[in-house]
Design a protein around this nucleic acid. Structure first.
Length: 587
RNA sequence: GCGCCCGUAGCUCAACCGGAUAGAGCAACGGCCUUCUAAGCCGUAGGUUGUGAGUUCGAGUCUCGCCGGGCGCGCCA
């Protein structure tokens, strides 16, 4: 197994180092895979790292290290090159062994213990349950799910969590939106506020209310509108008009709460659970699953928000000003202090978020990863600040930002306007391009890069589409196996030494990289590395397939080549599973 | 204005935490199907890594300035 090869070479180098420069024996050995094949299978820049400390030319150090290198049967050639690299070539046995390893470890090939079974919480999506998920949430979902699966594969104990913003004004707006639609359906025509939720799903929920409880929630128009400032002209976009619209909406909410009294929570709850169920259904269909749906309201119910602020207060980080209570986040690197409790007594979103993070720490995770939309980056200092103020370890908290995804159709941007309610939903995107292409395209870019999502390309069943390219390699191998008149188990005894042509050697080396890619991707929180690796692996296989015939008269050679092919298929499966993309057996 | 992120082939993006000659895929051009799936393969062309300095054996990668783009700067969430 190549991983052993890496460790093996490290051991040889450490031994040589101990004798050449005992005082620097602890220097970390960095082994890399050279880009160029003639630079060998592995290379180290160790001599260059030592050059300054030893005050010697790198090549001189390289010569001394090579002289002291223990003899190894695994290594066929050691050379000094460039400014002071030491290049290693492995013997062919060491390389083809990887094929047997893949077959033996099967679904577990590439699995790592890097995470040391540490408990990590990955929180993602966490969209307000006020309407269907859109394509921006989709990227967070795809990234979070793949990252979680990747971390689990790399040895972490992963918990996937969705933070449900079920408290606060946005939920009230959804409830009042539903109620106004409901009233309209019962002949009580209220001008629909432009800042209420516009989507057709609001009407659907209103109808559901009627189906369940008839006209129970109908109230007189005058009562509903009582005390509201009214709506300014629709074409006014000045600050005064905007403020008035907000006041109008808040007054409608207040009236709703008063008029419906104990029935208001029902309407509120109905809207919440409908939207939550819709989102959950959507995500499940997308292959995105959560262990926890964490309610923001529960933080108030259990008194944690209060306790949390008391704790901060006791530590002297809270003060009062203008009737509100402020957290002195500037003491912890934020650019200004932040309100945690408003003049009207209500807690801000930030207050419950502090409590949420305290709760995460109290649950005993070794590490927490928040996946946020990049537009929230300004929020990082205050959350980190709150964590520090609570005397918790900020190093345990990682915040991964996901940039926007912009859809392109026929070369033009697709509309993403939330206000008009005509934005592209995740569900619509999934239906249009399919879950496989969707998941793959979302993670084909580094998360912190803007993503141009080309709908036409994702849909195209052509060579241009990288999803099919990889799936096709997998299907080809399945097809080969179906046509071969042998049993797969026999491949375990294949004579791998027959895999000697350059393409075969290159392909086996490529398979050996997979565990390294898994670790690197996990370390960098970068599942896109898996996607790139798989595409390159598929390319390597397609090239091999076109150059050599697999099913030949020579049974031994056929066996060796099919063993290699099956190993490729296995690695494709393992990688695609991390990305949540299927591997059809035929296309 | 201040803060964070980003500028790599015509386009979309990689580049193993500072390494060797910066790599893929589209698009362009030229080849390969009477044999295992042409959703494929082979080849050609395409670059002063936005720009100017600095750090050192060595910079796409680190530091600073400038230019250009995105986002954020609520008692919203």
């Amino acid at each position: 197994m190549t991983f052993d090869s890496r460790e093996h070479l490290t051991g040889l180098l450490q031994a040589a180092l101990a004798s050449v420069a005992p005082e620097h024996a602890e220097t970390p050995i960095h082994l890399e895979r050279p880009k160029q094949a003639d630079h060998g299978d592995f290379a180290t820049n160790l001599p260059m790292q030592l050059a300054r400390a030893l005050k010697l030319a790198p090549r001189v150090i390289a010569e001394r290290i090579v002289r002291e290198l223990p003899v190894s049967a695994e290594v066929s050639e050691v050379s000094i090159a460039g400014a002071g690299f030491i290049n290693f070539k492995l013997n062919s046995g060491a390389k083809t062994r990887i094929v047997a390893s893949v077959m033996e470890q099967a679904d577990n090939f590439g699995r790592s213990t890097l995470g040391g079974n540490a408990k990590v919480l990955v929180e993602f999506v966490s969209a307000n349950p006020t309407g269907p998920l859109h394509v921006g949430h989709g990227r967070g979902a795809a990234y979070g799910a793949s990252l979680s699966d990747l971390l689990a594969y790399a040895g972490w104990d992963v918990t996937r969590e969705y933070y449900v913003n079920d408290a606060g004004r946005q939920m009230d707006i959804l409830a009042v939106s539903t109620w106004i639609r409901y009233l309209d359906q019962h002949g009580v025509a209220i001008d629909y506020p432009p800042n209420a939720y516009q989507g057709v799903y609001v009407r659907d929920m209103a109808r559901q209310l009627t189906n369940a409880h008839g006209d129970k929630y109908v109230r007189a128009k005058l009562a509903v509108l009582e005390g509201t400032p009214g709506l300014p002209a629709a074409d006014r976009a000045d600050d005064e008009a905007k403020a008035q619209r907000e006041q109008h909406l808040d007054a409608l909410i207040a009236n709703g709460k008063a008029l419906l009294a104990e029935d208001w929570p029902y309407v509120h709850q109905h809207a919440l659970s409908e939207q939550l169920a819709d989102g959950r259904d959507d995500l499940n269909g997308f292959g995105v699953h959560f262990q926890n749906w964490f309610s923001e309201n529960s933080l108030f119910d259990t008194g944690l928000v209060k306790r949390c602020l008391e704790k901060l207060d006791a530590a002297g980080h809270i003060y009062e000003q203008n009737g509100a209570r402020w957290f002195r986040s500037t003491d912890f690197g934020d650019e200004k202090d932040r309100v945690v409790q408003r003049e009207n007594g209500l807690y801000t979103y930030f207050a419950s978020d502090i409590a949420y993070h305290l709760n995460k720490y109290e649950r005993g995770f070794d590490r927490m990863i928040n996946i946020w939309g990049a537009d929230h980056h300004g929020y990082i200092p205050r959350v980190k600040g709150a964590v520090k103020a609570l005397a918790l370890d900020p190093e345990k908290l990682d915040i991964a930002l996901v940039q926007f995804a912009v859809l392109y159709r026929n070369g033009e941007k697709a509309s993403m306007s939330t206000r008009a309610g005509d934005y592209v939903t995740l569900r619509a995107l999934r239906a249009e391009v399919g879950d496989d292409a969707c998941r793959f395209f979302y993670v084909l870019r580094k998360a912190d890069q803007h993503l141009d999502f080309d709908l036409d390309l994702a849909k195209s069943q052509s060579a241009d589409n990288p999803v099919y390219y990889i799936q096709y390699a997998h299907a080809r191998i399945c097809s080969l196996m179906a046509q071969w008149n042998g049993s797969e188990a026999d491949l375990n005894d294949a004579n791998l030494s027959l895999l000697s042509n350059p393409r075969e050697v290159a392909l086996t080396a490529f398979l050996g990289r997979f565990p390294e890619v898994v670790e690197s991707a996990a370390r960098d929180l970068a599942p896109h590395q898996i996607a790139f690796y798989l595409r390159d692996l598929a390319a390597e296989f397609h090239g091999y397939y076109n150059a050599e015939r697999m099913l030949v008269d020579d049974a031994a050679l056929t066996g060796a080549r099919l063993a290699l092919s099956v190993a490729v298929r296995q690695v494709i499966r393992n990688g695609m599973r991390l990305l949540g993309v299927s591997c059809p057996e035929s296309m």
